[in-house]
Design a protein around this nucleic acid. Structure first.
Lengths: 190, 190
DNA sequence: CTAATATTTGAATGATTATTCATCTTCTTT
DNA sequence: AAAGAAGATGAATAATCATTCAAATATTAG
């Protein structure tokens, strides 16, 4: 059983921000240590390696996406309702974990095997959930689009890049953001 | 007058692919030299620095976006027509310069001043073009959306991330891709 | 209070980084 | 063919990288 100490959580949080701002490769363990307020060598009392930090960030967020979607959907939701809920769940995760989302979406490539393959597998699984959701709506005749793969990628593109521009202290709450985005997306395929 | 030799163009092309695949920071001049087929020191007969290569990639693509949009739009286009043309112009640039788009969208942060500020200024200018386009449609009553800033960001998010999933040798041509995407987007705000 | 455990540190390690430079080779121009 | 320019190279430079380790310090448990 792995215990995540408070300090380890703090290190991960700061690393998340730095990896997002400067990129994983351009963030040194010395950079990280300085922000944490200790020496670089001390980091290794809490984490095994730089890559372990990246791995933790990526897989934690992957799980957050799955969990949020699973908790949001009800078996008897109509297709448009399910799509709306899935969009809002996804937006919710991104908007609450902006930096982690940036790392999740771009820095995973610096994972080494076998983490890399596991990560890509999770991403694909998640995409398949969305594919099924869209297909159901199309089969029922309530969604209209030319190509399934394009529609899924289109939707996820719009959702994912929210991390790049949403300002949590700006004009809109996460709930309002979700509502606006799901409106634009659902109208796009109805 | 700057002359871009064939070899410099080749170096830039290979660097574009490597920066896209591994990221700017994680791509060494030795990596680049090896792919070009020369020694690292020889690169400096053709380019001033690693950053000059990045700068060239980013600004060349920025210009491509402006040019494509400018050439696509006619003064008497209706709003939906103008939006469709702008989407297709943007998608065209991304789809034809997939790797460069990835670099443009993510690696610009490694530019140093004053290039960095110039680049961000161009990005903002481009976004303003889109804002005006949407506003005109809303004023005419043909576009419907809650918030302008969100709508613009939503559209650009969907367009930009095409670089991440479009396969040029796959099922769809660039023209077909453009058509599908613009359909999804325009329907989303009508 | 004492012993055990956990955390921190400065210094070192060995690898890798972008870039420079004198020298050598190749190409172009006359 | 001779001269000059351009390109290529191995070696060197100085900086930075992630990580290790023995020793010092701080924290916890009995």
């Amino acid at each position: 059983m792995e215990v995540i100490t408070e300090k380890k959580a703090r290190i991960t949080d700061i690393a998340t921000r730095l990896f997002r701002e400067k990129g994983y490769a351009a963030t040194s363990m010395r950079d990280l240590a300085q922000e944490v307020g200790i020496e670089a060598a001390s980091l290794y009392s809490h984490v095994k390696s730089k890559e372990e930090i990246l791995s933790r960030i990526c897989f934690t967020l992957a799980e957050a996406f799955f969990t949020a979607q699973h908790q949001a959907l009800q078996p008897d939701d109509s297709s448009p309702e399910a799509l709306r809920k899935a969009v809002e769940a996804h937006v919710g995760v991104v908007a609450v974990h902006l930096s982690a989302s940036g790392v999740f979406l771009h820095e995973w490539r610096h994972l080494s095997e076998p983490s890399l393959s596991q990560f890509l597998e999770l991403r694909q699984q998640y995409e398949i959930h969305w594919l099924k959701l869209l297909r159901r709506g199309k089969d029922e005749g309530v969604f209209h689009y030319e190509d399934e793969a394009i529609a899924v990628r289109h939707i996820l593109s719009a959702l994912n890049w929210i991390y790049d521009w949403y300002k949590p202290n700006g004009r809109y709450s996460v709930a309002q953001l979700s509502a606006h985005i799901s409106q634009l997306i659902i109208q796009g395929i109805q």
